[in-house]
């Protein structure tokens, strides 16, 4: 649903390949040195949410499907990962993989139900399915209801890297983020990504060309769910906690906001959006409920006047300057 008049929609990302490479290098470099000056746990939260938003963006920005229930993938993976690490005593890499797989499976089931409808229906169905998952997590014994799964052990990655060391943990999280980011970039630029875009632009035509639109959309949905799960599982290891917050519908709204604010359909937008929103929540936390009001206000402003988002506007400005 990105605004078709925006340059970001016409050129794949509003950026040429060279500028994308430069921007990517800059982003990784910034994240690599940032923990020297910024609190690493905060940055890891940003990275997890950025990954979550990138996964979400894969669906809305390139598939044109607005999911309003992505929190179920984030939260479910968090629970599975935390349970695997704490109760089953699995090493972190296995726990994260298991969490990701659980979300991919959940994505397959919910995707099969939701994918046949479009637009507003799709949003409402995903929201309702996510609410069902929320109630499941509220009642299922292994999630410990309101308490969540606490003091999840971080353990040693591949039995070598001790994740209790905050620096080791930080660079592992950064590596996960970068790996997933590149995977998304690769997906979007692959023939698969092109077909996805074609379906977004004109589904009947894509079908008439012989593409099984539903199968492509389902695959994109499962991939997005799995990557959201990766974000959720990593988050559970970082905070040593899996809680209801991550499955609640407010989280589904937040990821929409991050992507919208950063720029839907741009490759760096979700990262910028996640940085701003997590930063806001972190520094405005003393304001209590006003944060909700501010979040809502950003939503309204973005929809009314700032639909391209931060990165989209930047790309448009850049394109105009060069023209």
């Amino acid at each position: 649903m990105p605004d078709p008049t925006s340059p970001a929609a016409r050129v794949p990302f509003g950026e040429t390949e060279r500028t994308t490479a430069i921007a990517f290098a800059l982003m990784v470099a910034l994240f690599a040195v940032a923990p020297v000056v910024v609190y690493p746990v905060f940055l890891m939260n940003v990275l997890c949410m950025a990954l979550f938003a990138c996964a979400f963006n894969l669906l809305i920005g390139f598939g044109g499907l607005l999911s309003f229930g992505h929190a179920m993938f984030l939260g479910m993976a968090g629970y599975v990962c935390a349970h695997a690490a704490k109760v089953w005593g699995l090493p972190p890499e296995a726990a994260i993989a298991l969490g990701t797989a659980a979300s991919a499976l959940l994505g397959l089931v919910t995707g099969l139900l939701a994918i046949r409808s479009q637009g507003i229906y799709f949003a409402m169905i995903t929201l309702a399915l996510a609410q069902m998952v929320y109630f499941f997590c509220l009642q299922a014994p292994f999630t410990h209801g309101e308490d969540g799964i606490q003091s999840v052990p971080r353990g040693k990655l591949f039995a070598v890297l001790d994740l209790n060391n905050i620096w080791v943990l930080y660079y592992v999280v950064l590596a996960i983020f970068v790996g997933a980011f590149l995977l998304i970039y690769r997906t979007v630029h692959s023939p698969f990504g092109q077909v996805l875009k074609a379906i977004r632009e004109n589904e009947p035509r894509a079908i008439s060309l012989g593409y099984d639109a539903d199968r492509y959309k389902l695959l994109a949905f499962v991939l997005s769910a799995a990557l959201s799960g990766l974000a959720g599982a990593t988050k559970a290891i970082v905070f040593q906690l899996a809680s209801l917050t991550d499955v609640h519908w407010t989280m589904s709204g937040e990821v929409v906001l991050m992507t919208l604010l950063g720029g839907m359909g741009t490759i760096f937008g979700p990262v910028a959006g996640a940085l701003v929103i997590v930063g806001l929540q972190n520094y405005l936390a003393p304001l209590g409920q006003w944060v909700t009001v501010i979040t809502g206000a950003i939503f309204v402003v973005c929809v009314l006047a700032f639909r391209r988002g931060i990165v989209g506007e930047l790309a448009a400005w850049w394109a105009k300057r060069r023209a």
Binding site: G119, A123, W290, T292, V293, G296, A297, V300
Partner: peptide, 24 residues
Amino acid sequence: KLDHLYGLLLTFGLALIIQGVFTN
């Protein structure tokens, strides 16, 4: 004139604002 999903997003934002203010 835009995609209908923007209406959903706008009203979602408004709901957050209203609920936040009343909760405060």
